[in-house]
Simulated assay, not measured.
Amino acid sequence: GETFRPAIRKSQINACDQEERERDKLSQFCRLKNSKRKMGNTSSMLTQYDIEEVQSHCQDLFEQQEILSLYQRFCQLDRNAKGFISSDEFLSVPEFAMNPLSQRLLKMVDGLNFKDFVAFLSAFSAKASLKQKVKLIFQVYDSDCNGKVSFNDIMQVLRDLSGSFMSDEQREQVLGQVMKEAGYTSDSFLTLEDFIKVFGSCKPEMNVEIPVD
């Protein structure tokens, strides 16, 4: 009987060890699935499926190699590997820090995971349509996010863009004329469709390169 009890204890220990190893494997598997699902966990590498999913999310405006480069940049910006980028981290991209609309743009990018980071940048792609570019500009102008922009909303952005090169009087004249030609007045509130009608022929230059070095 004395030699039998240690054997039982040893088998029990082995069984417990086996169960613990199985739990560890399951836990690791769940963490891996979760990180891939979030598409923002910078500790995991992108799979071919991930790349194609991101490519579809940004309407194929970036090639697969460009997405890999953007992922490298995303990981560099996401300093603590949180899975998303804060507005302060985004400011470390010189092209955005120097942009006169940077403070307005930061409200749109704070907390983006990788998929949404790429989707946001897709409007700056050379392959983006005019409608996609104008839609982003509309979102910048729509400061209170109510789906409409007023004459004053647009005036404020024009102030940011033109600085001291134009007076308020000049800005009002130019904007008033553009809106009048499209059939609107300074009292009009423009929806996205209205905005595209007024400014859709301006062909905005919004190409921005995100360095990965």
Results as ranks from 00 to 15, higher is better:
residue 167 S to W: 14
residue 21 R to V: 06
residue 112 L to V: 08
residue 138 F to I: 02
residue 159 R to M: 09
residue 41 N to P: 01
residue 179 M to F: 02
residue 158 L to Q: 13
residue 88 D to T: 14
residue 60 D to N: 15
residue 35 S to I: 05
residue 25 K to Y: 00
residue 185 T to W: 02
residue 130 L to Q: 15
residue 77 L to D: 10
residue 172 E to L: 09
residue 121 L to D: 04
residue 41 N to V: 04
residue 147 G to C: 06
residue 75 C to P: 07
residue 29 F to P: 00
residue 75 C to V: 09
residue 131 K to E: 15
residue 104 R to S: 14
residue 190 L to Q: 02
residue 158 L to R: 11
residue 116 D to C: 06
residue 114 F to Y: 00
residue 144 D to T: 11
residue 127 K to R: 15
residue 49 Y to Q: 07
residue 149 V to M: 03
residue 77 L to Y: 14
residue 8 I to P: 01
residue 5 R to M: 15
residue 207 N to W: 15
residue 20 E to Y: 12
residue 95 E to W: 06
residue 98 M to E: 11
residue 40 G to W: 01
residue 93 V to A: 03
residue 70 L to D: 04
residue 68 L to V: 14
residue 85 I to G: 02
residue 117 F to H: 04
residue 150 S to F: 03
residue 67 I to Q: 09
residue 167 S to Q: 08
residue 146 N to G: 05
residue 186 S to R: 13
residue 6 P to G: 09
residue 122 S to L: 09
residue 55 Q to I: 01
residue 126 A to N: 10
residue 138 F to L: 01
residue 137 I to H: 08
residue 162 S to D: 05
residue 188 S to Y: 04
residue 13 I to N: 12
residue 200 G to Y: 03
residue 72 Q to R: 13
residue 43 S to E: 15
residue 175 L to D: 03
residue 87 S to Y: 00
residue 135 K to G: 03
residue 141 Y to P: 01
residue 138 F to S: 00
residue 141 Y to I: 05
residue 144 D to K: 11
residue 116 D to S: 11
residue 79 R to Q: 13
residue 109 V to T: 05
residue 183 G to L: 06
residue 211 P to F: 10
residue 200 G to H: 07
residue 102 S to W: 11
residue 209 E to P: 00
residue 178 V to H: 07
residue 24 D to G: 07
residue 144 D to F: 04
residue 174 V to N: 09
residue 161 L to S: 10
residue 129 S to V: 03
residue 159 R to C: 12
residue 207 N to T: 15
residue 32 L to W: 05
residue 160 D to W: 07
residue 77 L to T: 01
residue 61 L to R: 15
residue 96 F to L: 11
residue 75 C to N: 14
residue 74 F to H: 02
residue 58 C to G: 09
residue 164 S to Q: 12
residue 151 F to Q: 03
residue 47 T to I: 11
residue 96 F to W: 13
residue 200 G to P: 02
residue 21 R to I: 09
residue 182 A to V: 09
residue 98 M to T: 12
residue 212 V to N: 10
residue 77 L to R: 10
residue 174 V to C: 07
residue 115 K to D: 04
residue 193 E to A: 12
residue 24 D to T: 14
residue 26 L to I: 13
residue 188 S to L: 04
residue 191 T to V: 01
residue 112 L to Q: 06
residue 171 R to E: 05
residue 168 D to Y: 02
residue 15 A to L: 13
residue 148 K to T: 11
residue 193 E to T: 09
residue 22 E to L: 15
residue 59 Q to L: 04
residue 110 D to T: 00
residue 8 I to V: 15
residue 179 M to T: 01
residue 136 L to H: 06
residue 69 S to G: 09
residue 116 D to Y: 10
residue 46 L to Y: 11
residue 143 S to T: 08
residue 205 E to M: 10
residue 207 N to H: 13
residue 175 L to Q: 03
residue 160 D to M: 12
residue 68 L to W: 12
residue 20 E to A: 08
residue 70 L to K: 06
residue 57 H to M: 04
residue 157 V to R: 03
residue 56 S to T: 10
residue 87 S to P: 01
residue 141 Y to D: 12
residue 70 L to T: 08
residue 76 Q to K: 12
residue 211 P to V: 00
residue 68 L to Y: 02
residue 47 T to K: 06
residue 207 N to L: 10
residue 202 C to I: 15
residue 15 A to S: 13
residue 7 A to W: 15
residue 150 S to A: 02
residue 44 S to D: 14
residue 154 I to T: 06
residue 131 K to R: 15
residue 24 D to Q: 11
residue 140 V to C: 11
residue 159 R to W: 01
